[in-house]
Amino acid sequence: MSEHYSKIVVGTDGSKSSLLAVERAARIAAAFDATLIIGCAYYESKEDASKTLRQDSVTILGDDPARENLDKGAEAARAAGATKVETEVRSGTPVEALMAIVNDHQADLLVVGNRGINSLTGRLLGSVPADVARQSDCDVMIVHTVS
């Protein structure tokens, strides 16, 4: 395990708080000259989306809106100083999508916003930041994007 990050993954759902996480991750990527991989999850259908009890992330149907979010995220990342920026869309829940992206790229840092972590639903059902922190094999940074 090196103390140098070379591949950093951050998730976005297009929301203001997730873009703050992207900007923080981009600044870390710039400092380490690391590759930043911005991921966005989407649901294939309304049925898939309705199966999730989560309300802590924006529900994105289909990969077109997901790609739009990634374009916005990549723009914010470059503005924050990241030079090596990649984007990935994945179907599934935000947690499934982020874990798949982390594992596929063998990332060494995952950055997520803290939205949902302190809500009642988040405490009962879990939240994206808490769940990825439990499941991830790499370092996880939870950015304070929602007070």
Rank of each mutant, 00 (worst) to 15 (best):
S127H: 03
V128F: 02
A25T: 08
K72N: 14
K51Q: 14
R54Q: 13
S18G: 02
L61K: 00
S2D: 14
Q55G: 15
G81Q: 02
R24K: 15
D13W: 04
L53Q: 12
G92V: 00
S18P: 03
S45K: 07
P94R: 06
A29V: 00
L110A: 14
K16Y: 02
E86I: 01
A80D: 05
T145W: 07
R27E: 15
I60C: 01
D63A: 10
A82S: 06
T145D: 10
G92D: 03
A100S: 14
N103Q: 14
P94V: 07
A31K: 11
A76L: 08
S2T: 15
L61E: 03
D71C: 05
E68F: 12
H144E: 15
T121D: 15
G39N: 10
T52M: 08
R123K: 15
D131S: 13
M99R: 08
L98V: 10
C40T: 14
S119K: 02
C40Y: 08
L98S: 02
I8S: 04
V10A: 12
G14Q: 06
A76M: 12
I28A: 00
G62P: 08
A31D: 07
E23H: 03
L98N: 04
Y42S: 08
D104L: 05
D64H: 10
E86Y: 07
G92M: 03
K7A: 08
A30Q: 10
E96G: 12
S57G: 08
R54K: 12
H144I: 09
D139E: 08
Q135Y: 02
A79F: 03
V111L: 07
V112F: 06
V22N: 11
S91K: 11
H144F: 01
L120C: 00
M141C: 01
A30W: 00
K16W: 00
L109A: 04
I37Y: 00
V22E: 09
L120N: 00
T52Y: 11
A49H: 09
A77E: 05
E47N: 12
D48V: 05
L124N: 06
E23C: 09
T87M: 03
H4T: 11
S50I: 10
L124F: 13
S91D: 06
N103A: 13
T121L: 15
S91V: 01
E75D: 11
R67Q: 15
K84S: 11
L124C: 06
G39P: 01
G14W: 00
A133Q: 13
E44G: 09
Q55N: 15
L19W: 05
I28H: 00
C138R: 03
R123I: 04
D137Y: 02
G73P: 04
N103Y: 01
L36T: 07
A100E: 15
I101K: 06
L98Q: 05
L19Y: 01
S57M: 01
S50G: 09
M1A: 13
S57K: 04
R24M: 13
E86S: 11
V132A: 10
S136A: 15
I28D: 00
F32V: 05
S2K: 14
G14L: 02
V9S: 12
A133M: 13
A49V: 04
M1K: 12
S15Y: 05
A41L: 02
D139K: 10
I37Q: 04
G122E: 01
